[in-house]
């Protein structure tokens, strides 16, 4: 029913495409039997496309299903329904064995650069691991590991150190080196800089950009930080409660956002510029994210939507309550999932 995140840049081939992805997690009750008492609708009917050499930013607040989308797209957790195509392969029906071989092409970089590195492996071994897994280490793997370490800004002499001996930014570089080792086509980055101080974060972002330019990688960049996403992404998809509510080219999304949630998100991010920050028009939302186990009917954003609360008539409101808005272009230049979408300038 929903459209995808729109056409990818002309003339390029689609590398990854997800169609109507759904992922439900069972909620188990307490007690001995641990019966399933409900379902968390972590991802509901999400579709997107990612072209070769492109960066798609996936943004949204905590718990909106970004990480789950990323993992389902990599077939790391099985989708409840929906399809994922990688190149010309359909991932959801690929056997575990074929999937393991395919992982060479698609890699994941984690948010917590500490938890995702085995504390008992020295760094050179960590970076060599992907090569070993795919039987590529014996052919000059040692030298490749050293090159990789240099590439991401680590000293090869430090290869025998353990992850805990490195600072956060360096650990994230280790994670990136590991992901790069197999020369993948796709990197899925799950909040790769969220745990880092700004001065360190900038270095990692630059590294990612340079690697992309050099190696022609495609990035699915997951983040809750709109500023970071604007900096790095070509196209952006905004998620709310398991759904993509707005998507489009980065420039358009920031210059003419059309979904009330995107408005609120952009308004909520403080600009590091005192004069502009204090002079800004603000759209604020009230309340907190509803539980994904029991999402509101109709438009999922309606419980917090400032437009719903302040601008709509009762009959318009009932449309929001009863009818789920589709993700489609309503004359704003890019797909938006709001019955009353309206482009605004907020920056």
């Amino acid at each position: 029913m929903s459209t995808t995140t729109g056409p990818t840049a002309a003339g390029t081939r689609t590398l990854l495409s997800a169609r109507n992805l759904v992922k439900h997690f069972p909620v188990r009750g307490g007690g001995l039997l641990r019966r399933t008492v409900g379902e968390v609708h972590a991802v509901c009917d999400v579709s997107f496309e990612l072209a070769e050499g492109e960066t798609l930013g996936l943004v949204g607040e905590s718990g909106c299903g970004k990480s789950t989308t990323a993992r389902v797209a990599l077939n790391l957790i099985p989708a409840t329904s929906g399809e994922v195509r990688f190149g010309d392969r359909e991932l959801t029906s690929t056997s575990a064995k074929d999937m393991r071989a395919l992982r060479r092409e698609m890699q994941l970089v984690f948010q917590d650069p500490y938890a995702s590195l085995d504390p008992r492996m020295p760094v050179s071994e960590l970076i060599a691991e992907p090569l070993r897994i795919h039987g590529l280490y014996d052919a000059g793997g040692r030298q490749q590991v050293r090159d990789l370490m240099k590439t991401v800004g680590l000293k090869p002499e430090h290869g025998n150190r353990y992850p805990h001996e490195f600072s956060g930014g360096q650990r994230q570089r280790i994670g990136i080196a590991r992901a790069l080792a197999l020369r993948p086509k796709l990197l899925v980055l799950d909040e790769p800089v969220s745990a880092l101080d700004v001065s360190i974060q900038a270095g990692v972002l630059n590294l990612l950009q340079e690697l992309q330019a050099e190696l022609g990688l495609s990035y699915l960049f997951v983040s809750h930080d709109l500023s970071v996403v604007r900096h790095i992404a070509d196209r952006i998809a905004v998620m709310y409660l398991g759904k993509i509510v707005e998507t489009g080219p980065a420039e358009q999304l920031f210059n003419a956002p059309a979904h009330p949630y995107t408005h609120a998100l952009i308004s909520a991010i403080p600009l590091p510029d005192p004069r502009r920050e204090r002079a800004r028009e603000r759209i604020t939302v009230v309340g907190d994210l509803p539980s994904p186990a029991n999402p509101p009917s109709g438009c999922r954003f309606r419980t917090r939507c400032p437009k719903f609360a302040a601008e709509l008539s009762a009959s318009q409101q009932s449309r929001c309550t009863d009818e789920e808005p589709e993700l489609s272009d309503r004359g704003t230049g890019h797909p938006v999932a709001c019955h009353f979408a309206e482009a605004r300038s907020l920056l």
Partner: peptide
């Protein structure tokens, strides 16, 4: 100055950030 240069900005498209090398 380095901190300010490290910040990705929501209100403008910047080509490259200027990170501070090293760590504290």
């Amino acid at each position: 100055l380095g901190l300010l240069g490290s910040l990705p900005r929501l209100d403008q498209q910047s080509e490259r950030l200027t990170p501070i090398p090293g760590s504290p």
